[in-house]
Write a protein that binds this DNA or RNA. Structure first.
Lengths: 192, 192
DNA sequence: TATCTAATTAGATACTAATCGAATCCGATT
DNA sequence: AATCGGATTCGATTAGTATCTAATTAGATA
């Protein structure tokens, strides 16, 4: 159950001080004392907030001598931005919200064989999303996958793993950075 | 300053009970008592949470006799999802995070005449975003615009208002629902 | 009007989280 | 080794918030 991950993520952003910190860091890396000074707070307070932000993966840090420079993990921000729902560019977005459980299992039954192979890839966006959501269930949350691993995994569903892999990215179920793949953390819950 | 709007929004989602409520409502409308029962909580607690969710616009309600049926405001969910950042589909997304103030004003100067007209529309995504962000400054936050109004407004910048209007949607500065337009509420801060 | 049902308000309690001062840690420099 | 600068840990205080019970409101029905 990753409900708690969602909660923690939003808690991290649900505090004015932390939002101000993020706003600051958007302009560039800063060390703790500098942040404390500009916000009119004491260093321990900043440490406290940085811990929270770090826990949800929102910041990166780089050490230089004694000072630690914090910066935003833009990737996570992007993800959270796109994540919450996997919405397209408008249009049929609302449909995605309202997939009933019956519809879902009907789609699964239609597109997968009894032994779990994907018969063919749906064209309709809504069905795509259901099918993709189903396939990633075997992937681990928070784990970083090599492209080869992803291919291996997807091949169990269909020989055209390349298409599936591309679609996972397009529909934002996963994201890629220098050929490493990861499940989109925020995404999952809203669709499961 | 809409920093607080952002904070309140995330606070609303930063609570396990409320996330569970949202998860429930995703499957369809429910009245308070039903929610209370399935979550093992008392009605006043639900009222409390519904108030918070309502304050950030996450739920709609419909009254039928004595019972009030709550449902999700999917539009806001979509918005919050797309909002946080206006990121593209990957690629140059990171650049968008790091527009310095100098860059920004350089771009503004390059693409607008002294009297504020748009000379031409940039092709580069980063510049697009800056230009669009600049143009919407005259629009009101939370107000619903008719297509005609938007056209009128954009015509002041460039005669090809249709392109601009489309781009505002594409880059998610605004969203449209049955030909009414509205500024994307979550968007703004992260770019300002 | 009396009654029933569902929702809300008010007040109390317990829990959680933000902030700070003091003490400590940990690298780097002397 | 001693010291310095920055970050962190610890403990205490305070502010905020989730939850409950009891009382109240509001609409519908008898």
């Amino acid at each position: 159950m990753q409900l708690n991950k969602i909660v923690e993520f939003h808690k991290a952003l649900g505090d004015l001080t932390r939002i101000r910190i993020i706003a600051l860091l958007k302009q560039g890396p800063l060390n703790g004392q500098a942040i404390a000074e500009t916000l009119g707070l004491k260093p321990p307070t900043i440490t406290h907030h940085m811990t929270k932000l770090r826990e949800v993966g929102l910041i990166k840090e780089r050490r230089d001598k004694n000072t630690i420079y914090f910066s935003l993990n833009t990737k996570i921000l992007e993800m959270s931005a796109k994540g919450i729902l996997s919405v397209g560019t408008g249009g049929d977005a609302k449909m995605e919200m309202s997939v009933t459980e019956e519809e879902r299992s009907a789609i699964i039954n239609n597109f997968f064989t009894k032994d779990g192979k994907l018969k063919n890839y749906p064209a309709q966006r809504k069905k795509k999303l259901v099918v993709l959501a189903h396939m990633i269930k075997g992937l681990e949350f928070g784990k970083v996958y090599q492209e080869k691993e992803i291919n291996e995994y997807l091949k169990h569903y269909h020989e055209d793993y390349a298409t599936l892999r591309r679609e996972l990215i397009m529909c934002q179920y996963m994201y890629r950075e220098n050929n490493q793949y990861e499940l989109n953390p925020v995404e999952l819950w809203w669709l499961s």
